[in-house]
Design a protein around this nucleic acid. Structure first.
Lengths: 255, 255
DNA sequence: TGTGCAATGTAACATAGGTAATTGAAATCG
DNA sequence: CGATTTCAATTACCTATGTTACATTGCACA
């Protein structure tokens, strides 16, 4: 519903001018669409037409094999941009589906051309977004290739937690958490049964409190250690400006 | 040693002008460095300074956990660009090491700024490279999360084969293949022992001929089927121009 | 204010792939 | 050119995670 998360995130990285703000603001109010939960926004094979900016809600990118095996390859949280410049490709190689109800703004090819020509700060900010997304995807490769079930889930929860916090979407040590165990299974390459076992273990160790659609993280530090989580890949700092001590943050950060 | 692979690859996607060629040519002859096999070019934690263009040789990107577990997250083949615009990040979140002897050209921030301002075709080509690399990384996520050992290795071999072919580095149905079983293990998240078992299986099925540092693929089609390989994610075609029938190519393609 | 379906939880059993240890062949090196 | 290291191959055994099946909870909506 709002641009706040995007701006908050990008400004962590570059300082945007009032004009930049206006540009982003216009881009994100024209051509807004709303979707219900658990529907596809984009399907593999389609011609990409616009870039999607998530204004509110959670979504994921997924791929599927002919026999039905399914892998979630990334999550989209509010403020995320689906794929800067995708429209230069002929067809989508994956699908995008919603988890909750979602509002998105469609950004046109034109928008990017204008930005490229006239708004270098925004270009830089978009490159940052692109590079961080690539880094996240590499870290998922690492998780799936090397981490145990418990480490994988702990790691994923840390990542989501920090991304939500950057977008201003955590409250104290808890946050909305609409993912089902099936979603977690598809994202971590584990079976639903084993995700269930592993969540119980995390609960028993006091690392998470997960009930209904709410997640609480009593000690981010301990959860990070359990997931062998090193926040460097999120690149949440820039040019000397240090994000308020991500790695060693006290467990409850103020909004 | 040469720019040919890069140009061949990019031109598959956009037609570059003589001026574009000249630009790339200059960029890839200034500031060339040579490395031996099995050395690090870039280390996690360093400040990225230049973008690296692989002129010859094979390299990989890898990440490591404190306890030594190691994951190769991508391979670099001749003509590959390490990370367009990395220098906007404060530090590297992974390392890059050579497999064979490697020659690289270092592309400066300045080079990218000039290109951005004056050479839109090159910008588009670089965006294509970036988007394809992202797609490859997603496909690795898919492989590690969902494919069996045999599928994973078959899939990886198909990917490398097609990328080499696009760069003009296959001869008939065979190619140089400097990866050890340990490298394959680190890339697929399997143990060396299991990689060995799986390669034997692929050999027994007549899907590959792998001896010394040479790989032959008697039938790309059959190998693709074994790996549940769908080439769409490599985006080797553009705007109606179809890459000479990648999916159904006769097994021996002329150089 | 039940009723139906999705999500969670549990148990018993199965297996793909990991571990450790050893051997031989082939590069690489001093 | 013999010594040393790396790589490939193989065996025996082990375990983390998958599979199938079913019970329970909870919540959307009639």
């Amino acid at each position: 519903m709002s641009l706040a998360s995007l701006v908050r995130k990008l400004e962590q990285f570059v300082r945007l001018s009032p004009v930049d703000h206006a540009i982003l603001n216009r881009a994100s109010t024209e051509r807004v669409r709303h979707f219900g939960p658990r529907v596809d926004i984009v399907r593999e094979g389609e011609k990409p037409k616009d870039v999607h900016l998530i204004l509110s809600g959670w979504a994921y990118r997924y791929k599927q094999l002919e026999d039905g095996r399914r892998q979630v390859v990334s999550f989209f949280l509010p403020g995320d941009i689906c794929d800067v410049n995708v429209f230069i490709l002929r067809e989508m190689d994956h699908s995008i589906g919603t988890i909750t109800a979602v509002s998105i703004a469609d950004l046109s090819r034109d928008f990017f051309d204008r930005v490229a020509a006239e708004h270098p700060r925004i270009v830089t900010a978009f490159w940052w977004e692109t590079l961080v997304n690539a880094a996240i995807q590499r870290e998922w490769t690492m998780s799936l290739g090397q981490r145990t079930a418990l480490e994988r889930i702990a790691h994923l929860l840390c990542e989501i937690w920090l991304r939500l916090r950057l977008a201003g979407l955590t409250q104290g040590n808890s946050c909305d958490f609409p993912l089902t165990q099936g979603d977690l299974a598809d994202a971590t390459g584990l079976s639903k049964v084993h995700v269930n076992r592993t969540l119980q273990e995390l609960r028993a160790d006091g690392l998470i409190v997960l009930r209904g659609k709410t997640l609480a993280v009593p000690s981010l530090d301990r959860l990070m250690r359990a997931g062998l989580f090193n926040p460097n890949y999120l690149h949440m700092d820039h040019e000397g400006r240090q994000l308020d001590a991500v790695a060693t943050a006290p467990d409850a950060a103020a909004g």
